[in-house]
Design a protein around this nucleic acid. Structure first.
Lengths: 213, 213
DNA sequence: GTGATCGTTCGCTCATCATCGAAGCGATTG
DNA sequence: CAATCGCTTCGATGATGAGCGAACGATCAC
């Protein structure tokens, strides 16, 4: 269930039950456990109850666990999934995978972001607006952009409010679409053009309907 | 048991059994589980068997879990411990806590380390030798210095081979000593002098035999 | 060799908890 | 209002596995 929720979206009891291969009552019991442990939060909308991870910290901890988990038969299915969605995916609420790393590198080399003691300082630039990012008016206590270690790439990419804005804008405007496979994203043609024009990113290897097993 | 092992040291079956409040047979069974899960490794020396965490990755994942764990009664004891050892401690095999963060800042501001894409590039400097650090002769694939997020400070400090060398040298030369309380380190007078002279660090608030509960 | 210490194996017990079917509740649809 | 759908509660069951004491093997001290 937690792996299912790692994409940052909300799922209903029924969806999580079928994902875990159990009946709804069992899923209810388990989700109550997760909720009392503070790992997930539930939100009632109509007759449906949507569950999602509490915070990016929880997602991060899960990723850490996944990175040290042995590859026994139980996790084989999850691993296969993870392999299939390698090139471009979402990590909780922001981009992950090679494209996310490439974007981050580009921001850094252009001076739009500056690395400082494990955080990112954002610099004003009109490119941000093109990417749908609204710069913070006030300098809050929470960092606007935070680094997130990608455990397949072993490189940093952007999480925090900035990462959230980048992904949600890309989804809104249709640059990327959610794949049916969990956590997978597929780059659309407008998205390819946009990333090429705005950032000069070569997206030839990203988001193609992968045939790799 | 895992919390006990977080200081990077090896512990015997008996020690871990008493730390967990169970009998040796139970500890044996549990440690075999942890071993088959790849979390710990066992090493036989004489009639004793020493258990330690498999890697820094495991330690890191545990820290991540601790950072999202709710503070219910079960973990109260651990929390109290964590509170007591705040100023200076070890994280698996390297320094942690405010002093570690201050050291890292000093290395960065002096240009001895350069932050780059989530890693640290080390620069030649004769100060390294004074700190007991042997610079790597070949540029290996594994980064020599890696950042480690301290979940109490929420700042980066140094792990990896560099962090390991810094701590082991400081222990060897008597700059710091292991506290009886787990993971705690206490700064000795020579250590104070050394950090002041070599790095200009003010250590007035660090390592004093804390009276805080 | 003898005794002490440490760890493991064995067999057993007991509590816990995951799981399910059936029934109940609330919301939506017609 | 009636029917449907989704989620939860309830009660019962069954299996898992944590835990212990006792016995055994291995190592060290004298």
């Amino acid at each position: 269930m937690l792996c299912e929720l790692l994409d940052g979206r909300s799922y209903t009891n029924k969806e999580l039950a079928s994902a875990a291969g159990v009946t709804p009552p069992t899923a209810t019991a388990h989700l109550q456990l997760l909720q009392s442990a503070g790992l997930v939060v539930a939100e009632r909308r109509g007759r449906c109850v949507f569950h999602r991870l509490t915070s990016a910290e929880v997602a991060h901890a899960l990723e850490q666990l996944a990175s040290i988990a042995p590859s026994d038969a139980l996790h084989q299915a999850q691993r296969r999934k993870a392999g299939a969605l390698a090139p471009l995916r979402s990590c909780y609420d922001h981009f992950a995978g090679p494209l996310a790393v490439a974007m981050t590198d580009r921001f850094l080399s252009r001076g739009m972001l500056i690395e400082r003691n494990g955080g990112f300082d954002i610099q004003p630039d009109d490119v941000w607006q093109k990417l749908g990012v609204e710069l913070p008016h006030t300098v809050g206590k929470q960092p606007f952009a935070r680094p997130c270690m990608d455990w397949t790439e072993r490189r940093l990419h952007i999480s925090g409010p900035l990462g959230r804005q980048l992904l949600s804008h890309a989804l809104d405007i249709g640059w990327v679409k959610r794949q049916t496979v969990r956590r997978g994203l597929v780059l659309t043609m407008p998205g390819r053009v946009a990333f090429q024009q705005i950032l000069g990113l070569d997206t030839h290897a990203v988001g193609a309907e992968s045939a790799a097993s």
